[in-house]
Each structure stands twice: as C-alpha cells, then as structure tokens.
C-alpha cells in the first residue's frame, strides 16, 4: 500500500526547473532514502511535500487524499512531520519548553508532564532539560528536533540530513533510532549524504539528479549502478 504518492510534480524557480515531472511512491512502513548531488532538488522536493512550496503542476497524495492544496500545518495534522536540515529548534527556550510546545496540542496536565519525561529519556536529554536549546551541542540540537518531530506520532517522518555534523557513533545511534521508530510503524523518507547511514537503514533508495528521478532500487543496486557513480563524480554527460 502506498502512503505518499507524488504524481508528475513540477516546480520552476524562474527559468530553473528544480523539480521535473517527479513520480515517487512511498510504501507504508518503509525507510526510503533520497540521495543525489547538491542541487539535485532534494530539499525542494521536501518543501513541496510539506507545502512550503506550491508545485507548478502535479499532485501530492497522502494516504489516498490529495493534499496538494493544503497548507503546511494542515498536512502536519494529516500525519506528516519533518526534521529540517539546519536544526530548527526554538533556540531561546529551554529544552523542556521545546518539547512542551511540540506535545501540548495532544496532551494536557499530568499526562503532558509524563510524555515530556518519556521523550527526554528517549533522547537522552534529561540532564539538559532546563538548558536553553541554543546552548546545546549540534548533535543534541539535531536529536531535540527529531524528538519534536516524532512527538507528533506521524505516519510519515521526513528527515533532511538527520546525521549532518554528527560523529560516526552519533550517526550510527541515529540510524538505530530511525530503525526503532520504523519498527513501531513509522514510514520514513530521509535525505542523506552519509552512505553508511543509508546502508544501515534504507529499504529502498531513490537517486535524484537535475530535478528528476534518476534511479531507484535497493542500496546494492544503486551502488552497483555505474550511471549513479558517474553523476556523483560529475560525469553524467560524459
């Protein structure tokens, strides 16, 4: 069963065709990685899915519903959630308040407190809960934002370079976290450059190049594909 379906999605910025007739189907329950060289249109595709950009043409279907015209917050209500590339936490507020803001529309009172505690433990940020989020290390900010994103209990989690700036150990731990979430039923679409991470978690991989779907398959198929190796080396048209 497909959870997310992109149909002939197009987006122009002036003369630049950043998303060129993209068709992409995400199966419910899979971890899908989106890779491609810089400027391939990966982040733009995320913004289209999230409703921050409107497509020039094409449709976005989520759980069978056409959400192309919905505003961002309404898409979140349908079961989408995102962790941005640059950690998008509320820098001036405490770690605890960050999580409270994420959780308060679902939980109240003592139940809210319990949920915050559970999430702090899950993220390993218990001792940092009164800390101002802007003072956290880069990795901790990434995790805090992942925590906020998953606190919505989304059906589809979008991760834009979740391991950027992380050490190999942190990257591996993040991979395990993603697998744990997936085991709990969450579908994941991740933009990632770190091939070790992709190898660790991905069920399927899509390669985006010049705004188009260039290749799709398992990680082994993608790695074996000479055309993919060529575009990463900048020799696509050679």
């Amino acid at each position: 069963m497909s959870l997310l379906e992109l149909r002939k999605l197009n987006k122009h910025f002036g003369g630049l065709h950043v998303t060129n007739s993209v068709d992409l189907t995400l199966r419910a329950g899979e971890i899908h990685c989106l890779i491609g060289p810089n400027g391939a249109g990966k982040s733009t595709l995320f913004r289209l899915i999230l409703g921050e950009h409107r497509p020039g043409s094409g449709d976005i279907l989520f759980a069978g519903e056409n959400i192309t015209a919905l505003k961002s917050f309404a898409r979140i209500h349908r079961g989408l959630s995102v962790k941005f590339q640059v950690p998008g936490v509320f820098k001036g507020l405490s770690v605890r308040q960050n999580l409270e803001i994420a959780l308060q529309s679902r939980h109240r009172g003592g139940e809210l407190e319990a949920e915050i505690g559970r999430l702090l433990a899950f993220l390993g940020l218990e001792s940092e809960q009164t800390q101002i989020a802007g003072n956290l290390s880069h990795g901790q900010k990434q995790w805090l934002e992942i925590g906020m994103a998953i606190s919505l209990k989304p059906r589809l989690l979008l991760l834009d370079e979740p391991t950027a700036g992380m050490s190999p150990e942190e990257t591996h731990m993040t991979g395990e976290m993603v697998q744990r979430l997936n085991a709990g039923g969450m579908t994941v679409l991740a933009i990632e450059h770190d091939m070790a991470f992709v190898r660790q978690v991905a069920h399927r991989v899509t390669v985006l190049h010049l705004g188009q779907v260039f290749a799709q398959g398992s990680i082994d198929e993608i790695v074996a594909d000479e055309r993919v190796a060529a575009i990463y080396l900048g020799q696509a048209h050679a």
Binding site: L50, F73, I76, G88, F90, G92, S105, E145
Partner: peptide
C-alpha cells in the same frame, strides 16, 4: 517568535 517554520511544522496555524 523563535522559529515560525518549526512552529508551523508542529501543526500550528
């Protein structure tokens, strides 16, 4: 105030 994009992506209008 801190981050309108993040606030929207937590489902707030």
């Amino acid at each position: 105030r801190e981050n309108p994009e993040r606030a929207e992506m937590l489902g707030y209008d």
